[in-house]
Structure formats: structure tokens, C-alpha cells
């Protein structure tokens, strides 16, 4: 009690410093959670994809589930030789993976990771609860595209350059419909704050605006650069796309950020359209406190599983078809969805 008392006393005396300390602690926790989560996503993708392909996947390190596989990969990548190509634009080349991880951390700062249910009330777990968090998260997610362009441009490699072009063309085509979808959700929720969006979902927005949901899922897959929209990395066409020249830990970072983004993107999808952490409270002590977390986790896992399912069963589109789809179908349809959201939203308001 003494410690808590002194902490609260300190908080009352120096609110600014206290907020800073809390912020730093929160940031560290969030970074740890996101990175560990992303490692689990990579492991999960390898295992689930193996299941789809009728094989075993990693099962030699860390027991029969191969849970330590990612640890081995990380150690290997950390201790690899660091190669910067002779003709590369060194500054940009070095900064690209850092910008990529910066982007994901920016997203992680504003995205709610769930809530704790204490005393009949939900306390959202979010580091920076800002009023425009939905829009901010969607914008920060696309920093990855800038990192992709930096990586591709600076490598001085033809494949990387093509990968970078493809990445940017795709990003521009799909960022707009994605933003419009976020706006439609905000219109219905009367708020751009993700916490308020979740709390306003008495009916999941996936049912309230199915068209917007579908468009958002497609745009999200595009944003994450996953099949059928992984043209910037299309291994069979342009070797490894934008990261062709990257090796060792730099490549590890870039590769890792893709999965970080996948995790954060699927959280965003669950928050915006699938009711977030809302769900019936489990009437068991302790579990009732974290039951919102469990609901969100389940939704995120289902979304991620869906992404892997799509990867194992769809063909890759050509880049011109991707942009065609984006500009000619996604954008008008998302505007239509916005109109629908305005109509329905104002009716219920």
C-alpha cells in the first residue's frame, strides 16, 4: 500500500513526468507484445500452411510443434554477415527496415489490444487513446509501403525496383477505398476513435455494411502484401521483389514487419467490423476479467487463419489487374458503401 500511495503522490505532484514514465512502460510492453505476437503469427502461418499443403511443417526444434523454429531463424539471421551492395544508396538502404518497424510501432501505439472487464465495465487496453485513432492506424499501416519503396529503390537492383514500383502502385490504388471504408464505419459509429467504434457496435459492422466489410478485407490483404496481392514480392517473377538484396538481420526485420502488420491489420479488422472485444462475459472468476481479450484474440486468430487459407488457395493477380480492380471496382463500390453508411447511420441517429 505504501508503494501505491507514494506512486499516487508522485503522480499528483509531477503529472507530466508520471505520464512520460507510464508511456515508456506502456510502449515497452506493447512492443514486446506485438513482436512476440508476430513471431507466433509467423510460426502459425508456417504450421497452418503446412496443414493446408498436407505436410508437417517445422517439427524438429522445440518439441513436436516446432515452436522454437522462429527462435532458430532469428538467431541465424542475427548472426549472418551484413551485406550492403556496393552501389546501393547506403543511407536509404539502412533506414528502410527501421522505417518499416517504426510504422508498425506507430500503429501499435494507437490500436486497442482488447479490454479488461472489471466491475461491469470495460477498460480498453490502449497506449494512446486518440480521437482519430481509426484513421491514424489506417494511415500508419501504409508506412510499410514507403519502407518497401525505400528498400526497393535503394538496392540498385532491377528486381527490387520493379517490386518497389508494384508496391507503390498497389498501395495508392487500395489505400483510398480502404480509407473510405474506415470513414463509412466512422459515420455509422459517429466517431473516429477505435474504442468508441467498438463500443458502438451493437450490430457488427460486418453485417451493417457487408459491402464495406468485403472491400476492407480485400484492401487489407493488399495492404499487407499477401497472396493474391503479393506482387511486390512475387517470388517467381522478380526473385524476391523489393528485398532481393537484403540479407541477414535487415531482411529479418523487413520480413518480420510484414507479419507485424498482418497481426495489427487483423486486429484493426476485428475492431472495425467484427465487434472488437465485445462478446458475452464468461461467468467464471478471473476469466470474466479477461473475457473481452479472449474474444478479440479468437477473432484475430480466425482472421489470420482466413488470410492463410486465401494464400493457400488463390492465384496471384497480375499487377495491372490489381490496379484495375482497385480503381475501377473497389473505389466506386466503397463510395457506394459510404452512401449506404450515411443513409443507415443518419436513420439510426
Amino acid at each position: 500500500m505504501d508503494i501505491i500511495g507514494s506512486i499516487s503522490q508522485f503522480a499528483a505532484q509531477e503529472p507530466a513526468i508520471f505520464a512520460l514514465i507510464i508511456g515508456v512502460i506502456g510502449a515497452a510492453v506493447i512492443a514486446a507484445v506485438v513482436n512476440v505476437g508476430a513471431m507466433l503469427v509467423i510460426w502459425g502461418e508456417r504450421k497452418v500452411l503446412s496443414d493446408f499443403c498436407n505436410r508437417f511443417g517445422p517439427n524438429r526444434v522445440g518439441g513436436r510443434w516446432g515452436i522454437l523454429q522462429l527462435g532458430a531463424d532469428a538467431i541465424k539471421l542475427f548472426t549472418k554477415e551484413d551485406i550492403i551492395p556496393a552501389d546501393a544508396d547506403k543511407g536509404v538502404y539502412v533506414w528502410a527496415p527501421i522505417v518499416a518497424s517504426m510504422g508498425t510501432m506507430l500503429v501499435a501505439a494507437a490500436i486497442p489490444f482488447g479490454a479488461l472487464h472489471i466491475g461491469g465495465k470495460d477498460y480498453p487496453l490502449v497506449v494512446a487513446n486518440m480521437d482519430i485513432s481509426a484513421f491514424y492506424v489506417e494511415a500508419a499501416l501504409s508506412i510499410m509501403a514507403i519502407a518497401v519503396f525505400m528498400a526497393g529503390y535503394s538496392s540498385n537492383n532491377k528486381y527490387s525496383m520493379l517490386g518497389a514500383f508494384r508496391g507503390v502502385a498497389r498501395m495508392i490504388a487500395y489505400e483510398v477505398p480502404m480509407g473510405v471504408c474506415v470513414i463509412s464505419v466512422a459515420v455509422m459509429a459517429h466517431s473516429l476513435n477505435l474504442v468508441e467504434i467498438v463500443q458502438s457496435q451493437t450490430v457488427w459492422y460486418a453485417f451493417a455494411q457487408p459491402l464495406g466489410f468485403v472491400i476492407f478485407v480485400i484492401a487489407l490483404i493488399t495492404d499487407l502484401g499477401r497472396i493474391p496481392f503479393d506482387q511486390s514480392e512475387a517470388e517467381e517473377e522478380i526473385i524476391s521483389g523489393y528485398n532481393t538484396e537484403y540479407s541477414g538481420i535487415r531482411w529479418g526485420l523487413l520480413y518480420f514487419q510484414e507479419y507485424n502488420n498482418a497481426l495489427l491489420g487483423s486486429i484493426l479488422l476485428s475492431l472495425l467490423f467484427l465487434g472488437g472485444w465485445q462478446g458475452p462475459i464468461i461467468p467464471i472468476p478471473v476469466l470474466d476479467i479477461i473475457s473481452p481479450l479472449i474474444w478479440l484474440l479468437m477473432k484475430v486468430i480466425i482472421v489470420l487463419w482466413f488470410f492463410i487459407w486465401v494464400r493457400s488457395s488463390l492465384f496471384r493477380l497480375r499487377i495491372d489487374q490489381v490496379t484495375d480492380l482497385g480503381w475501377k471496382w473497389m473505389l466506386p463500390l466503397s463510395l457506394l458503401n459510404l452512401g449506404w453508411a450515411v443513409l443507415v447511420g443518419s436513420y439510426f441517429a
Binding site: 499443403c53 498436407n54 497472396i227 503479393d230 517470388e235 517467381e236 493457400s312 488457395s313 488463390l314 496471384r316
Partner: peptide, 14 residues
């Protein structure tokens, strides 16, 4: 199939 769908595409493994 791997060329147009990537190595993650399941039917080629089948």
C-alpha cells in the same frame, strides 16, 4: 502452378 500462385499454393503440393 507455383509460378502463378506462389509456393504457398496447396494444389501443387497435392
Amino acid at each position: 502452378l507455383t509460378l502463378i500462385a506462389g509456393v504457398g499454393y496447396a494444389p501443387w503440393q497435392y
